[in-house]
Amino acid sequence: MILQAMDLKKYYGEGEAQVKALDGVSLSVYRGEFVSIVGTSGSGKSTLLHMLGGLDNPTSGRIIIDDKDISELKGDALCIFRRRKIGFVFQSFNLVPSLKVYDNIILPLELDGCKVDKDYIGSVVASLGIAGKLDTYPGKLSGGQQQRVAIARALATKPAILLADEPTGNLDSKTSQDVLGLLKTTGQKFKQTIVMITHDEEIAQMADRIVRIEDGRIV
């Protein structure tokens, strides 16, 4: 088991106005699995993903990633954990516009002062079909290409888990298919565990396992 969430709760506000974004979610993800979490907007799926990625703290509950309880980590330690163990792919790509594609991809490695494993990066880039774009800036790329760069960046550190937040939300259906396919196949190829959230049933079908979330609970 690579990821285990136990009885996660996230409440906003108090009393009458209290919103239960997550209300006791437990989830296990196994190594190499591709899990999709499906839910409508407001179902708490984004909150769940943010918690799993250590971007946000739960009101209660525990998250264990790669045998480490991340609720114990704070501030920069959490940041460094994220850098080494978690790869993110966001709906809005979130590439650094001022860095070239290649620099974007290896940025998490450089932040960690690692030597870049050129062969590995080379093969990731080749599988994602962006080998020819490494020397350009993200702004010059199509949405699909940008998202592929984001996937490459997420894979660069060989993270324990790759978290994708509506990765095709900003893409047309045809490009979405490409990106999802690549997410799936590169995940298979590099034996990567993937957790993806989406509101789209069809996209969720790409995964090995589908988890449904409604009103902050898994159904």
Binding site: G53, C79, I80, R82, F88, N94, V96, P97, L111
Partner: peptide, 16 residues
């Protein structure tokens, strides 16, 4: 600020 936030999500520390 978005850029800085983004850098943080991919693991850039406050110090960095």
């Amino acid at each position: 600020i978005r850029e800085y936030g983004l850098l943080k999500t991919i693991g850039t520390t406050t110090k960095q």
